[in-house]
Design a protein around this nucleic acid. Sequence first.
DNA 1: GCACTGACCGTTTTT
DNA 2: CGGTCAGTGC
Length: 688
Amino acid sequence: MAHGLNPPQQKAVNTLAGPLLVLAGAGTGKTRVVTYRIAKLIQSGIRADRILAVTFTNKAATEMQERIGELLGKKNKKQPATSTFHSHCVRVLRRQIQHLGYPRKFSIYDRGDQESLARGVLREIRVPNETLRPGDLLYFIGGWKTKCIRPADAAAIASTDKEHLAAMAYRRYQKGLKQRGAVDFDDLLLLTEELFTNFDAVRREEAALFDHLLIDEYQDTNGSQYRIVKALAQDHRNLCVVGDDDQSIYGWRGAEVEHILRFSHDWPDSTVVWLENNYRSTAEILTVANRLIAFNKKRHPKELKAARPGGKQPRIEQYPNETKEAEGVVADIARLLRQPDFEPNDFAILFRTNEQPRAFETELRRAGLPYVLIGGMSFFDRKEVRDVLAYMKMIDSPTDEVSLLRIINTPPRGLGGKSVEVLTKEAVRQGKPLWDVLGQPTVVAVLPDTAQRACEELRSLVDMFQQRFKKRPMVDAMRAMLERVDYESELQRLYDNPNDREARMAALEELANALGAYETKAKKPTLAGFLDDVALGGPDFNDEKDKQLKRNAIVLMTLHSAKGLEFPHVYMVGMEEGLLPHHRSVAVEGEAIDEERRLCYVGVTRAQDYLTLSMALTRRKWGKPRDTIPSRFLFELIGQAENPHAGNTATRQRPPGATRTQKAATPATRPPSKTRAATDLPSRRRRT
DNA sequence: GCACTGACCGTTTTT
DNA sequence: CGGTCAGTGC
């Protein structure tokens, strides 16, 4: 095997023992190296199930699994464990969480669950809604958690009134989670870390499950992940991390580039391999990419070398407004698609924020071109899906009242706010879960007749379906459950438009499919297991996403979700100050801009053959059109900005001939004028 | 208990 | 502009 690997790649594949840092630039065959390395480990006699490979997304995990399967052939029965940090932590916690005083059977709260809990907490400490809303609270808590700040410490660092309030609520929130036997997304990492720090025996037990640990996208590890990696690898020291500091784009989630920058310091005996030969993009595209990223100060100075010389020069297009931008881009794609050389899925439209794709969707629909919008509102965020999932969660653990409260009167069964209030008060008084109170005849007797019957109905529903979900296939149980609560009538009641109803029923059908897919794939399928997968955006969800990506359609997605992908044609739209770089990053000064630049770099390096950057001269915001300023990155990547860090690189001398010639070719294009140097750009920055 | 209406406001990016 | 939410009327 290992055909066609260049020397540094071979070195990365063959260095099997000890710490190894692979600094792999964009498009340098990183994934390939990782999979080959794992295959090599297995061939050299390491048992596959003693290898743990951690990827950034579930999708990457599945893909890696498949590639390794291809490399090793069918005969290899045992598979290496590939999962994301979060999924791996779930596995650890499912085995060990009782050490932290949580019930063994805990549930994972998604965003909606968190919101309900937050709302409850705020009501409890009687915070008026306009002072601190559930969303604000979660925003604060999220911020603290990504920085590993515990409730007790949050109070100390809080400065504003709002923060103090939030810190107080944070303590309650965390207590609430524990009481309900629930963990939120951040807890998966935080609790695992806590487990490893406080219980060394547990740490050793978990670390001993594997002899080799590989971490992909290491530049995006945050503090907890960093320490979890250490905890797992410190005994065997067979740690291989792969990443590119220039593609670190998750700083806002607590990721620190420093982790990858100081790897050799943490593991002094480590081997370092640099991969700089880019096989993805043409030389023209890489020139632009290299020139741009050279503006960042804190980085391993490396330069992508093109394996594919020449190519078409990247274009910059300017449009009068965002509608025209969408029209222009779509017209361009439509034109190219009329040629036989290209397929819809050769094209990607990349943008910074989730409000941007709307205009493009309308245009694409009008042009009758197939497209997929990746991300955005998740399938699992749809009301009907959330409702049905709430039923399943309640059946799985009735004592966790968040789900119970969601569907307690959905569809309406005469158990309205008043009755629920009575029940909740009673539950609080007794210090028991709401669920228990629903079954207490003396309590229920106070309620109106319909409410009484509703309580009975809920109790018997859960009793019945707890049994039915133990039988296979679970899909049958799910359908029976929908029948029983007559959810279809609820949809008819709520939505007059038949299309709407149909779409919503279809969503439920899709959920059933996901459940079915889970059942066939999982070793021992359980309702709880399915719900875990759903919470983690697990494989069943990814199948859908994957299918979408394979659907031969134009792909619309954010720059963040584009990480790791490649397309022959890339359109980066909305290249304006305030959007890329985003105004929130502009406002904080310093390193935030560097991350925006990396984001831009990620976008540019997705392109294999053609790259088109575009901007709108005015853009509507909240109904009003406003003038825009070209993104400073445009000046930087065409070489019209002073580079303070240019130093040894060749970024400076080349004039932006690329865009010049292009200007003549496309009259609509006006590259940012020289008179407005990038250094002047921030002058219009809004300070509020 | 539920639907409708108008005031309000403006979450960057996601596992 | 468009989504959310509290308040109002049935």
